[in-house]
Design a protein around this nucleic acid. Structure first.
Lengths: 232, 232
DNA sequence: GTGAACTAAGTTGTATACGATATTGCGCTC
DNA sequence: GAGCGCAATATCGTATACAACTTAGTTCAC
């Protein structure tokens, strides 16, 4: 399921690191929406007791990455179309202005880091690791909030990015072109020029493009797992 | 500490209801910033084991209302000046546009509810219950996000409102005039007229006024509890 | 008398045990 | 053979037990 399954690594896991590991697995689509996350199973996988597993699952449920159903267990969340719209609505409010702030405060070191992200994303795609590419693409957005020096907004954006990855897993229309890094390249240019207004506009359009590449018509919500589809 | 202390009520508490009860107590300033929240103490107060208490404290720590210090325990959070600025920065991005949406979608029933909130706030103030007044004042903002039909943004705003109450506890300048409901009255008028542009502008100014009524100079961060002041 | 070190008490961190609930499969009835 | 009901199994919910850490208090050395 995750690399934690290999019994060889002797890492000592905490609820936080387990939550992070699971979040990354979800973000990279190694754990697709609807996957059952059994407590015993996870505990054995990580070599910890259910106590810590439950803490990690709770943390993920607060970020809406995992849905906790009483007496039924934890499942990787399956955002509805309405929820998908809400997530991008929130991103539209937060990210453009944050990109503006980031452009103003941009440092050369941060620019290098952003460029490194794009390079790594390209490499991952060339290796066919679309999951890792998607993850890196998300980190790009989070890094922008970090540069803007807004940790509260960063936390919100981080959650929204992860949820976006679930939305992409469910509603992505054209599989071919991943998160087109064209937009990220253009953003970097704006950052390099410290052009806040341009960065804000580019981010706004980037998010609109992303949303446009999704199929958010209310046709078939994708039955997925028979019973889950009926919400029971 | 909270009404849960009275042993008479036979309510069965869950981690969620305990978290909600604690959050309200924090919001109403019955649990001031820096208060130690001992697990055994809380467990006895609510008549539950530490397991559920820990779950509730974790939930509150994800909302940044409680700070968890490893092997030290849980404390009501004490936002720094920088954090206070971040919270209001985030609110400035989220709430005005959300007020705009709310104005467009406003219903008569929601208008009545908003008015009821203001009335209840006045009553609380007249009774000298400033804590309850502050809580209701916050609920007013959350209700707006509900009307806007944005549950994701509502969750963010809800967190920011609660954190704002901590900020007010620490940095409020003029004790007399609580969250001046003048602004809320004006917002209701804009909502009644379904004037989105006006509501957005009023909300923006309301937040600026609120921030202006705080003392966010970096003078003395308020030592509070001697050792806590040194971050140890 | 000051300081360090050790000891003891208290609190949190984690695992485990037990009870409650949901689900599955079997067998019975019709 | 179809449908219902009951039992068995599996999983989650909560409490409790024990280990680890922090902290406070005391003693001893200097």
């Amino acid at each position: 399921m995750t690399e934690a399954m290999t019994p060889s690594d002797a890492k000592t896991w905490t609820s936080e690191t387990v939550a992070g590991d699971l979040e990354r697995a979800i973000h990279e689509h190694r754990l697709p929406p609807g996957t059952k996350l059994g407590e015993d199973e996870l505990g054995e996988a990580y070599g910890i007791s259910r106590t810590l597993v439950r803490a990690a699952l709770q943390a993920l449920s607060y970020r809406r990455l995992v849905e906790l159903k009483r007496n039924r267990g934890a499942f990787v969340a399956q955002p509805t179309v309405a929820e998908a719209r809400e997530v991008f609505e929130a991103r539209a409010l937060l990210e453009p202005r944050t990109a503006h702030s980031a452009a103003v405060r941009m440092t050369d070191a941060a620019l290098d880091e952003l460029r490194a992200h794009i390079t790594a994303e390209h490499d991952a795609l060339r290796e066919g690791d679309t999951g890792r590419a998607l993850f890196l693409s998300g980190q790009f957005h989070i890094l922008i909030a970090q540069v803007a020096d807004q940790r509260t907004i960063e936390a919100f954006v981080s959650e929204l990015i992860s949820r976006s990855s679930l939305i992409i897993a469910l509603y992505w229309r054209r599989r071919a072109a991943m998160c087109e890094s064209q937009a990220h390249h253009a953003l970097i240019d704006a950052f390099e020029a410290r052009d806040g207004v341009l960065a804000e506009e580019l981010m706004k359009n980037h998010l609109l493009d992303l949303m446009a590449s999704l199929d958010l018509r209310n046709l078939v919500p994708r039955p997925q797992s028979l019973r889950e589809a009926l919400g029971r």
